[in-house]
Amino acid sequence: MQENSRLMIEVSGVSKFYGSFQALKDVSFSVRDGEKVVIIGPSGSGKSTILRSINRLETIDRGSIIVDGMDVSDPKVDICKVREEVGMVFQSFNLFPHKTVLENLTLAQVVVRRRNRREAEKIALELLHKVGIAEKAAAYPAKLSGGQQQRVAIARSLAMNPKAILFDEPTSALDPEMIGEVLDVMKNLAREGMTMVVVTHEMGFAREVADRVIFMDQGRIVEEGTPEHFFTSPDHERAKLFLSQIL
């Protein structure tokens, strides 16, 4: 769809080894500005590893990853600059437990973006309002439910005005009744045009939101295509088997 928009993330020929085990095998894909890409696959397929390589939480052994024009694997590139532009949401939320919800949102704005405290708090409150949790601004993360914590984590990432957000199984640690509220926030983001790369097991979300689905197995991309094509008539046996197990 956004054929003409510029490339935001470009992954080419990426391989990664843990000792003799090859976790990623010649993985290549790209994400355009405003695109929503969902990566699915069985556990151990390398989907989280490739996602975490995009902001260099994992290093790669071969290939290159270009984010917003910056080469992530180039040691001369200031990785902090890349991370300022690419948000990340984790499976285990990773809120800062010693800081209030509001402080979780303002910390990086002040320390990294150099905003003054008042401005940062204003932005933080707007975002908390947006994810429906403004009344918890003064609470500590431990007092929040998992769903609330994950919404705060999304707001924390948004407070940096990222150009793209990476989601690493954002609902996998949640109780079933809380998954919906987090997915709703993510769907809203998608509607607003945020560039998103999402590793998830939520097939309903993938079907509804994704522009493209990437299916990985054993460290390589097996299939890539539109959600309609992937969910109704996947080309590969491995993908068919996976879908039959999960749907």
Binding site: R83, E84, A108, M160
Partner: peptide, 10 residues
């Protein structure tokens, strides 16, 4: 915790 802080650009 470190990963979350790094991913925010710290």
């Amino acid at each position: 915790q470190m990963e979350a802080a790094l991913s925010l650009g710290m």
